[in-house]
């Protein structure tokens, strides 16, 4: 591997950008493909699949065996709202391999007693996210039911192109949200990226079941991102 290629790979990883390296057994790593610049040819398709699955594999292209290694940034899972659903969601997400972090400016909700071993920010979303911006490898679930808290986070998530954006609330609540986001300048395609009502439709009947629905929807969005069946 060329050292400038190593530097480019490390830069991509530090900036949470997906990357794929292409190697042959005879010559080692020959090529670095960065997310957003992946070509549409056979190699690019294989690289896209590697990024989606996060798995390294060998592929045969033009009679040559190529080893593709995928470098996928770790998922950041931000939940707006230190509510009952979040109490069920935190341990479930951890069991599935996703650490979540909670933002809720209401200090009575965001307490370590209610959320042991979870990263908690008892601050407004816009303040937390200004210091630690969202990105394409972030999932955001806004579940406070309070537009004052949820809306700034949803706007930040749309601007950052988060791979998953979910918002709690009935269709009626979401209708009013759509009006507010339209007024804020977002078009239908952007607003359509918000999954609302939040969660896979499994008929969830209590906070823990809603947590299951949210977690499953977030995982589906992550594993299918960039593929045609994404949504």
């Amino acid at each position: 591997m060329d050292r400038t290629l190593l530097h480019g790979l490390n830069e991509a990883r530090a900036s949470r950008r997906g990357a794929v390296t292409v190697a042959t057994e005879r010559h080692g790593v020959q090529q670095l493909l960065l997310e957003g610049e992946i070509p549409g040819d056979a190699l690019g398709q294989a690289a896209g699949k590697a990024l989606r699955t996060g798995k390294a594999s060998s592929v045969e292209i033009d009679g040559e065996t190529l080893f593709l290694n995928a470098y996928v940034p770790p998922v950041r899972f931000v939940v707006i709202g230190a509510v009952h659903i979040t109490q069920a969601l935190a341990p479930m997400a951890r069991a599935a391999g996703y650490e979540l972090e909670i933002i809720d400016p209401r200090g009575a909700f965001a307490t370590p007693d209610r959320f042991p071993d979870v990263t908690l920010h008892a601050e407004w979303p816009q303040d937390v996210l200004a210091d630690d911006p969202l990105d394409a490898y972030t999932a955001l679930a806004a579940i406070t039911h309070d537009p004052k808290i949820d809306d700034p986070a949803l706007i930040a998530a749309l601007q950052a192109d988060c791979f998953y954006i979910g918002a709690l609330g009935s269709r009626k609540t979401h209708g009013r949200r759509v009006e507010r986001l339209t007024e804020a300048g977002f078009d239908d395609a952007a607003i359509g990226r918000i999954d609302a009502p939040i969660g896979l439709d499994i008929g969830a009947a209590n906070p823990a079941e809603i947590a299951v629905a949210i977690l499953a929807q977030m995982i589906a969005a992550f594993r299918r991102r960039g593929s045609e069946s994404a949504r």
């Binding site: 190697a23 057994e25 798995k55 390294a56 594999s57 060998s58 080893f67 290694n69 995928a70």
Partner: peptide, 14 residues
């Protein structure tokens, strides 16, 4: 770099 595994290899390819 691990480029291929069979069976119960301790670390995955990559």
């Amino acid at each position: 770099t691990v480029i291929e595994t069979w069976g119960s290899a301790p670390r995955p390819a990559g």
